[in-house]
């Protein structure tokens, strides 16, 4: 789907990301994990072209990201950050309708086909019942779903999620990640997300990329990546891991800070 080839990103003279490469296959769920300040979100933002990268290249279906214009990028991928704020009086359906914007010329209005896609996005994220409520009146999980619906209405090929669960309680976290899984399985949506929780990353991803201090530590399937050694090296924590089977995802139990 897309390949990130040895990119470097500088932030205020320092390298936030150095010489970083990874690849995402069509229909995969990829999680990026790593400690605070390791550059996970920076990496995602550069892929979404919200911030520039200074060396290397990103190719999207064989096309260099820098050669696309902003609308082309918007039709291919959509990035959601951990916290999004809609104007206080905006309704859910209005918000989701904005997702059609990259497909329209400046003078074009939304037609029936656009509205069908909007309703489909509401349906997929299970928020049809809330469509006339304001986004501000929704709970954290519901509002995150509304933003995902807006992203879906954009019909992107890749969904980029920057810590989609950070501000949510555990049941809403589960709700959002289940939705991500559903979109991936039913629609084959490719998803790249930054996650904090190792068990969530393990159970919801096909592949995991580990970042530390702007560099890639390793990448692979959850079974390959989730090892006590990796966790000690990256997070300085001792951990026990249950490898249930090759089919199932490993479960991580954090024990104590490593000495």
């Amino acid at each position: 789907m897309f390949t990130v080839d040895s990119i470097s990103i500088r932030y205020e003279q320092k390298n936030a990301i150095s010489n970083f490469s990874f690849a995402v296959k069509q229909g995969e769920v990829v999680s990026i994990i790593g400690p605070n300040g390791s550059g996970k979100s920076t990496l995602l933002k550069a892929v979404a072209r919200h911030i520039p990268y200074h060396e290397g290249s990103v190719e999207f279906e064989g096309v260099n990201l820098k050669s696309m214009n902003a609308k082309q990028v918007a039709r291919n991928m959509c990035m959601l950050s951990q916290k999004n704020q809609a104007p206080s009086d905006m309704t859910v359906i209005d918000l989701v309708s904005y997702g059609r914007y990259p497909h329209k010329k400046w003078f074009e209005k939304l037609n029936n086909e656009d509205m069908e896609i909007v309703h489909w996005a509401l349906e997929r994220t299970h928020i049809t019942a809330y469509k006339d409520r304001t986004v501000a009146s929704l709970s954290g999980g519901e509002s995150q779903r509304a933003w995902i619906a807006m992203a879906l209405a954009q019909r992107p090929k890749v969904l980029l999620l920057d810590e989609p669960t950070t501000y949510l309680d555990i049941s809403h976290q589960h709700e959002v990640l289940e939705l991500v899984r559903e979109l991936n399985r039913d629609m084959g949506m490719t998803v790249v997300m930054v996650l904090h929780d190792l068990n969530q990353a393990s159970s919801y991803s096909d592949s995991i990329v580990v970042v530390q201090a702007g560099e890639k530590v390793m990448s692979g399937t959850p079974n390959q990546v989730m090892t006590p050694d990796m966790i000690r090296q990256v997070y300085r924590m001792d951990a026990e891991i249950d490898y249930l089977s090759t089919e199932k995802k490993p479960r991580i139990h954090l024990l104590s800070t490593a000495r």
């Binding site: 902003a70 959601l80 704020q85 104007p87 992203a151």
Partner: peptide, 16 residues
């Protein structure tokens, strides 16, 4: 209308 939603959303929607 687009820019009032913030830089990130605007840029997601393909705006400079």
């Amino acid at each position: 209308n687009i820019i009032r939603m913030g830089d990130q959303v605007a840029s997601n929607l393909g705006e400079n």
